[in-house]
Design a protein around this nucleic acid. Structure first.
Lengths: 333, 333
DNA sequence: TTGAAAGCGTTACCAA
DNA sequence: TTGGTAACGCTTTCAA
């Protein structure tokens, strides 16, 4: 059986000093005479003492803990983001909790407020699906928070923005260069801000190049392989004139490619497809996917850095973190 | 600014009862008269009171928190595992911390002992790379722990075992059925128990079918696409007689397929490849990968269930969780 | 340079 | 059914 946890008290007794002195030693705070230091260190060593995170948390009101909220860690976009967060957190000796919302606004709400009951010093919210007003209300209620792709302006709230507009434009321009004029779009979840932004960028670019457009050239759907398949089929059957498809993300793009091939079109000769994100699989499929690359690790890393900055410098609200995008030309377009 | 956190004290005062009573209400413990209950509930509501996880943790010595340790969440094997863990944890209202060891025994050691300083009630250790003795020492030192693919027998330590031996045998049998006799293996990291087990199963099956064998038919390497490429090239160049390759995991298998094709072999006609794990990408590559499927979500889910059982029933050491495998025949073999 | 005492927000134990 | 008091393990503040 585990014997009584060794506490600061035990160490103090063993070293013949007060708890206070031990506390000073483990926190490198205040001056301590070498002999005392040595005795304390020795006692800590001997007893295998490890300060309790929880007790310390209660005393300081800080747990050195971050909450990372994503739609689904199984979505290939997020592991890299998470990794970036963890690396940044670890460098500052923070721990990170992980939560999945499953794209459900209700679940997200629930997680957010449960997080408020303390375990974390700050929250990273990626792929948020709750309404602006609700997010704002939460930001009001809660402590440090960093959100992805939601242009919220609020003290103590950090913002990470992916240049979705530029990305969509890049895709359209590439299609145009390849001689396409009729371009359809597989949009993502209607509640997803990044989908909304990509659609907007798409529309702008279309207008700019004076390309033909109908409302039904854009169809929303779940951001999955299956979603891509279904939407692409709808698009292609209803609009045979479409020769190019721009997808909200790579998974949908992959589904779209599959549908094209199933329908007997050669890709990219007869139907071209461009995705978004450049998840690692994009380079390995056949045909390899042309896509808009987003540095996912960077999103996580820089978002976490931003959060840590806010945490250490309470007053400051750092400027928005901007994440650039880039066109990666492979085979599908 | 956030005003003073509302505490149980505030609620008690507002409801005109003692803290104790409030505590009873939020924990559904003990009998409480309806009118009191109502007043307390009302006060909680009005004040927006949320019990502090940390204070509760200090008082109960339980944080309802799990630590999940994996080599790298970016490795496509682990997101699903993590998801399983999280779903199981969430069902019991536990939170989960995530850590990456980067396949480094030293880093793993560090994380494990840092976890011991409290934040978690129990640990899930997947893809461990530390030595048996060290793991045992830690199990001795530490609280509830569940490990993957390490046949550790120790009270309070749960074990999840993937049937790697059977998996390797399945692969070899399939090769044999397809007429292959000279089979090479791309082994994983030498320190990985699951790699060791897969190699062992491979050797046994080879012997059983009296297939030709040389030590150099098995070459270890990093469990990545690149690792697979390099090892496959070594194997194929040194042993042109090999017509079939069994890989430690799907990433290596994918690399092996690439090398085969780069070397001018057709897959599966001239060189066949079988992977392990059945990560989701395996079905999407060209050729699609024949592989040994492991239910990754299940690993996480059942491991977490096992840990929670130990936590709730301290004495009990549940039986090992066994995870079956299955051959998935696609195109690469 | 060191120590004593109070406090962080909750639960546990024992009375009332 | 309810309340008082003492933990839980640490840091902070103030003295010595």
């Amino acid at each position: 059986m585990m014997r009584h946890r060794v506490t600061i008290e035990d160490v103090a007794r063993a070293a013949g000093v007060s708890r206070q002195t031990v506390s000073r030693v483990i926190n490198n705070k205040g001056e301590i005479s070498p002999p005392t230091l040595e005795r304390v260190m020795d006692a800590i060593q001997r007893l295998g003492y490890r300060p309790s995170w929880v007790a310390r948390g209660l005393a300081t009101q800080r747990t050195r803990t971050l909450g990372l909220v994503v739609p689904d860690i199984t979505n290939p976009f997020f592991p890299e983001v998470a990794r970036g967060v963890q690396d940044a957190a670890r460098a500052k000796d923070y721990h990170v909790f992980l939560y999945n919302t499953d794209e459900s606004a209700e679940r997200e709400h629930q997680i957010l407020y449960s997080l408020a009951s303390q375990p974390v010093d700050g929250i990273l919210l990626f792929g948020s699906r709750i309404a602006d007003a609700e997010l704002l209300a939460f930001a009001e209620y809660y402590r440090p928070l960093v959100v992805l792709n939601r242009p919220i302006i609020h003290p103590g709230v950090g913002v990470v923005l992916v240049d979705n507009l530029a990305g969509a434009r890049l895709a359209v321009e590439h299609f145009v260069r390849r001689g396409h004029r009729h371009i359809g779009m597989l949009a993502g979840p209607p509640a997803s801000p990044s989908s909304i932004q990509r659609v907007e960028g798409f529309c702008c670019a279309l207008a700019e190049y004076q390309l033909p457009f109908q409302e039904s050239y854009i169809v929303p759907g779940p951001p999955t392989l299956e979603g891509g398949r279904v939407i692409a089929e709808q698009l292609l059957c209803r609009h045979p004139e479409l020769t190019a498809l721009f997808a909200y993300n790579d998974m949908m793009a992959l589904g779209a490619v599959q549908t094209c091939m199933a329908l007997g079109y050669r890709v990219p000769e007869q139907r071209a497809v461009i995705g978004f994100d450049d998840i690692w699989i994009a380079a390995l499929t056949h045909p390899a996917l042309t896509t808009i690359r987003v540095n996912k690790y960077d999103i996580g890393y820089r978002a976490a850095r931003c959060l840590l900055t806010i945490l250490e410098d309470a007053a400051q609200s750092p400027p928005a973190v901007e994440i650039g995008v880039e066109l990666v030309i492979r085979e599908s377009a």
